[in-house]
Design a protein around this nucleic acid. Sequence first.
DNA 1: TATTTTGCTTTCGATTTGAAAGTAAAAATA
DNA 2: TATTTTTACTTTCAAATCGAAAGCAAAATA
Lengths: 138, 138
Amino acid sequence: MKVKKEAHNFRSNCPLSLGLDLFGDKWSLLIVRDLLYYKERTFKDFSLAKEKISSARLSDRLSKLEDLKIITKSNHPTNKKVFIYRLTQKGLDLAPIIAECMSWSYTYFNEHLSDKTKKIVEAYQKNPEQVLKQFKSQ
Amino acid sequence: MKVKKEAHNFRSNCPLSLGLDLFGDKWSLLIVRDLLYYKERTFKDFSLAKEKISSARLSDRLSKLEDLKIITKSNHPTNKKVFIYRLTQKGLDLAPIIAECMSWSYTYFNEHLSDKTKKIVEAYQKNPEQVLKQFKSQ
DNA sequence: TATTTTGCTTTCGATTTGAAAGTAAAAATA
DNA sequence: TATTTTTACTTTCAAATCGAAAGCAAAATA
């Protein structure tokens, strides 16, 4: 339970700066990415992602994203200790940013990427709308 | 002059994670933003942007972006003390990420934005290709 | 009942940050 | 020509943020 509702201290009214103030760190969008791929994730699921986020950082980012209403946190149907995180519409709408970032890396760091990843990006570049739609409906 | 060429230590081969490792901080994309708007900028120009980056941070980010070949640094035609920073193609290609981030903020933080900004985002939402093309040709 | 799993929190040393002051060279001004 | 100002940084330092590891309590499982 969060008590202190920290007032947002935005650096400017630029919409880019605003976005960076909210989720412009090394981890937030990776959490969103996992939720785009898998739709539902638990704390442990996120911990197992290959970037190896620490539990302190993950805990912090999850509550920030929840405060921002980018994700929701709900109870597991049978296991009281486990929580299920999902994207809201606000979170889903971060997909284009993520896709464009992936697309850029595809162009300039192609050799670092897995074949599976390349195929997703290629599909996105060919038909962005369709790939984004897939994320939203899966 | 940079001596130590630090080896990139990427957290994973995910293209999103890769992008975040390179420019996923609070300042790098704001520098790119200024260059998208104005094409040419000096150290002082960047310093005057409304987000008020400190000179130490600006200096650090400019050399990182130059190392990444996202920007170039060249001499001022008449003033030896001044340098001119510009985007490379690699840097220009960050425009869609920036535009999508602005678009997201437009949707969810509309009331924070200036009318001028809103108009740009509206134009982008109506015809992304055209707005991006404008950036590249101005 | 004992052990394991889960979702955290706590601790702590290391890294990164912003703010401020300092610097040196070049340019502008007197 | 001498002095002042401008520019592009660098340096310093306290504060904030970070990752790694350990700790914890409740719930699930064996």
